[in-house]
Computed example of a mutant assay.
Amino acid sequence: MAKSKLSEKEQVTEYIQKLDPSLAETITFLRQAILAIDGEISEHIKWNSPSFYYSGDMKPFNPKEYKRDILVMNLHRGTTILLVFPTGAKITDTSGLLEGNYPDGRKIAKIKDLDEAKSRQKDLENAIRNWMGQIEK
């Protein structure tokens, strides 16, 4: 019997299970916090990392604008987790969570460990809620 294709959620779970346990614990915490913000936030593997996107209805747009992508985790830089917001420049963030002034409009949040993830949870939630408030439906 052929193995059935994993769902997007199962693909993310499988990805996390292959990580170092302390990194996996931090990623799992962030994952749960992000998904709890809104029922229209979904997850999948994009650019070889866990990523979160808006799954609700939107006005048509050019896919190169990444209007549906909320954030992509970059886990390829050692122990620091980079949360890359492809359209982060449009987010109003007064907490200092989002860093960078990239020409393509992205912003990045750096999370070193579970303690930092927990201490920045509200800032992350506020940034994502701000992003979601700007969705063109």
Rank of each mutant, 00 (worst) to 15 (best):
residue 15 Y to G: 04
residue 135 I to S: 01
residue 38 D to R: 01
residue 94 T to H: 13
residue 92 T to M: 05
residue 12 V to E: 05
residue 120 R to E: 12
residue 109 A to Q: 10
residue 81 I to F: 11
residue 5 K to R: 13
residue 82 L to V: 11
residue 42 S to D: 10
residue 17 Q to A: 15
residue 102 Y to T: 12
residue 85 F to V: 10
residue 47 W to T: 04
residue 92 T to N: 14
residue 30 L to K: 10
residue 127 A to P: 03
residue 103 P to F: 05
residue 56 G to H: 07
residue 25 E to T: 07
residue 42 S to P: 00
residue 98 L to P: 12
residue 123 D to C: 08
residue 53 Y to K: 04
residue 32 Q to T: 07
residue 136 E to C: 02
residue 108 I to V: 15
residue 66 Y to T: 02
residue 34 I to R: 07
residue 54 Y to V: 00
residue 101 N to L: 04
residue 70 I to Y: 13
residue 135 I to V: 13
residue 65 E to R: 12
residue 13 T to Q: 10
residue 108 I to E: 09
residue 67 K to E: 14
residue 1 M to H: 13
residue 49 S to L: 00
residue 39 G to D: 04
residue 119 S to K: 14
residue 50 P to E: 02
residue 121 Q to S: 07
residue 110 K to W: 06
residue 33 A to M: 09
residue 31 R to A: 01
residue 76 H to D: 09
residue 125 E to C: 03
residue 78 G to S: 07
residue 100 G to W: 09
residue 5 K to D: 11
residue 136 E to D: 15
residue 5 K to F: 03
residue 20 D to Y: 02
residue 53 Y to R: 08
residue 57 D to G: 12
residue 85 F to A: 05
residue 33 A to L: 10
residue 74 N to I: 03
residue 20 D to M: 05
residue 118 K to F: 01
residue 104 D to K: 15
residue 52 F to Y: 15
residue 11 Q to W: 00
residue 37 I to C: 02
residue 91 I to Y: 10
residue 57 D to M: 09
residue 17 Q to S: 15
residue 19 L to N: 08
residue 57 D to W: 04
residue 81 I to N: 14
residue 30 L to Y: 07
residue 11 Q to R: 13
residue 78 G to F: 05
residue 135 I to H: 01
residue 116 E to G: 03
residue 61 F to V: 06
residue 32 Q to D: 14
residue 17 Q to C: 04
residue 110 K to I: 07
residue 136 E to T: 08
residue 15 Y to K: 14
residue 95 S to D: 11
residue 105 G to H: 08
residue 63 P to H: 10
residue 58 M to W: 06
residue 133 G to E: 05
residue 94 T to Y: 07
residue 52 F to S: 04
residue 16 I to W: 09
residue 6 L to C: 03
residue 37 I to V: 13
residue 128 I to K: 01
residue 83 L to V: 09
residue 92 T to E: 14
residue 135 I to K: 00
residue 58 M to A: 12
residue 60 P to K: 10
residue 133 G to T: 05
residue 25 E to C: 03
residue 56 G to A: 11
residue 93 D to G: 11
residue 113 D to H: 05
residue 49 S to Y: 00
residue 52 F to G: 03
residue 3 K to N: 15
residue 33 A to H: 05
residue 126 N to F: 06
residue 11 Q to P: 00
residue 117 A to D: 02
residue 3 K to T: 15
residue 57 D to Q: 14
residue 13 T to H: 06
residue 111 I to Y: 12
residue 127 A to V: 04
residue 9 K to W: 01
residue 11 Q to D: 00
residue 34 I to G: 07
residue 74 N to F: 03
residue 45 I to C: 08
residue 27 I to Q: 09
